[in-house]
């Protein structure tokens, strides 16, 4: 567990052209190291740059400055295309391809990454089983509920067996009950698949249930890491009864104080 999979070094990001009025600085000098198989959660206010940070991490956007090391290799400001096979990205609002069925959306990943053969087809079923949607293989996204679509999005990000799972507020658009249920599901998936996970959320309880470490981003642009919190709640205590855990309640109090003080 002590291997460092990511070493992010003073990443900054601004949008718009240099020296013009339209230039917006969104991220300023974020540095963090992520351990293999760690579950990292990023907490921050709406619009502070969480998605932007994840997109840089996931090779969707290049950073403006700084560098990213992944698996001991320095890739500079952008993770190159051929490395992205090792990543699975879950988007803020599912981002399923509406012209493909559930199964087809998972197959899309395999097609893009040229993964052919029996074992990958079998993996589609396996992943749909993990998210409880095996019976919905042939449905189109418009025939699924919001929670189901989000689960397809998660299964899609896992089907090519990546090392890193990046989740951008995967439960943000869901009602409270579905959200809670799915957060336990994510916990189970993490336990089962042993992936490195980086997840963005704006829900403190969710963060404490899942995270090994929580990074809180400052609310004013350009954002940077304002707090780093080690969540030392044993894995055995992380289930439906976590609300009775003393450490959980202490940490929750503390983070809520942090969040309140920044408003």
């Amino acid at each position: 567990m002590e291997n460092k999979i990511f070493r992010i070094n003073r990443i900054s990001k601004s949008f718009g052209s240099e020296n013009s009025d339209s230039k917006v600085e969104v991220i300023k000098e974020i540095s963090m190291e992520i351990l293999e198989k760690e579950f990292v959660v990023i907490l921050g206010n709406s619009g502070c740059g969480k998605s932007t940070f994840l997109k840089i991490l996931g090779g969707i956007l290049p950073a403006s400055s700084g560098n990213i090391e992944f698996n001991g290799k320095d890739y500079g400001q952008e993770i190159p295309r051929d490395v992205l096979k090792k990543f699975g990205f879950v988007f803020q609002n599912n981002n399923l391809l509406q012209w493909r069925t559930t199964e087809g959306n998972l197959r899309f990943m395999l097609e893009m990454m040229h993964l052919k053969g029996e074992q990958w087809t079998a993996r589609i079923d396996e992943m749909l089983d993990i998210v409880g949607l095996k019976a919905y293989k042939k449905e189109y996204p418009h025939e699924l509920s919001g929670g189901m679509r989000q689960r397809v999005g998660i299964a899609r990000a896992l089907v090519h067996n990546p090392d890193v799972l990046i989740l951008d507020q995967p439960l943000g658009a869901l009602d409270a009950i579905t959200r809670k249920m799915l957060s336990y599901e994510i916990l189970n998936i993490w336990k089962k698949t042993q992936k490195t996970v980086v997840m963005v959320t704006n829900n403190v309880d969710e963060a404490l249930l899942l995270a090994n470490r929580i990074f809180v981003l400052s609310p004013v642009l350009p954002t940077t890491i304002s707090h780093e919190i080690q969540v030392n709640i044993p894995i055995t205590a992380r289930d439906e009864n976590i609300y009775e855990n003393q450490r959980f309640n202490e940490l929750r109090e503390m983070i809520n104080d942090i969040v309140r003080s920044t408003i």
């Binding site: 997109k55 969707i60 992205l84 990543f87 988007f91 981002n95 990454m113």
Partner: peptide, 8 residues
């Protein structure tokens, strides 16, 4: 962005 995220 989905296409980018899979290195298409």
């Amino acid at each position: 962005e989905l296409a980018k995220s899979v290195g298409a």
